[in-house]
């Protein structure tokens, strides 16, 4: 009996499998593109910084950022969906933009994360968000740089709007969840506030980990006690 394992054609593979293949290719491409930036800058300027100086600076930077990267990949990947994850980690600004944008789109469309429908909606939302951000930054830099300096200057009327953009964003995003799931919401917020009372400058990455664990733990307990 012939026991050869036939390779699946692209159409036979699941959508998720194909997204992972595309995502891996784009991520490796993005990594090469990223590394090409300092390489091109150094080639263009005809300078190569001493490796020992760069390593000395990296000794401070790597323990913070590489550790954070591990936590971020573990935390965000399940929420963003595969397509959303691959795009978000290339374009950055995940906590303050890509994640809430994906969550909002899935909520509006009435679909859940980790379903094929959720995957589609989150991928489109994060893709649109990445393009919009990239274009706004590009247009802003090219056309409005002098004006932007004025808008964001301390004391300008617009300044408070941008200083408090995160409470505005997460208040608006959270309202619907708080109304629907108020029993689940109270505990992680209280835990977050309590932690900040003792460590007010705690980095947001660490605080996120604590509130997510509190939220999931509290919910599991309430399910067990049949409170929800």
């Amino acid at each position: 009996m012939e026991k050869t394992k036939k390779a699946l054609s692209p159409s036979e593979r699941s959508y998720f499998d194909r997204v992972h293949t595309w995502g891996r290719i784009w991520t490796v491409g993005a990594l090469l593109m990223l590394l090409s930036v300092p390489t091109l800058i150094c080639l263009h300027l005809g300078v190569w910084p001493p490796a020992k100086d760069v390593f000395q600076a990296l000794k401070t930077v790597i323990p913070i950022y590489w550790g954070t990267a591990v936590v971020e990949v573990l935390t965000y990947t399940p929420m963003l969906g595969a397509g959303g994850t691959y795009q978000s980690f290339v374009t950055g600004n995940i906590t303050n933009l890509k994640l809430p944008c994906g969550l909002n789109a899935m909520e509006n469309a009435g679909v859940k994360a980790n379903t094929e429908e959720g995957e589609v909606i989150s991928t489109i939302a994060i893709g649109v968000s990445a393009i919009t951000t990239t274009l706004i930054i590009a247009v802003g830099v090219l056309l409005f740089a002098p004006l932007l300096g004025v808008i964001t200057q301390p004391g300008n009327a617009f300044e408070p709007a941008f200083t408090y953009v995160l409470p505005a964003l997460f208040g608006a995003l959270g309202a619907g969840y708080f109304r629907k799931h108020w029993k689940i919401s109270v505990f992680p917020i209280l835990v977050g506030v309590a932690v900040l009372l003792f460590a007010p400058t705690l980095p947001v990455g660490t605080l996120l980990f604590i509130t997510i664990v509190a939220s999931l733990g509290g919910t599991l307990l309430m399910l067990k006690l049949k409170w929800i």
């Binding site: 906590t95 959270g174 992680p188 900040l196 947001v204 509130t211």
Partner: peptide, 19 residues
């Protein structure tokens, strides 16, 4: 699933309240 999302939002709400 809702709890995971609320955990994210809770961190930023907490920061606005006490950060």
């Amino acid at each position: 699933s809702a709890a995971a999302f609320i955990g994210v939002i809770a961190a930023f709400v907490a920061r606005a309240v006490g950060g």
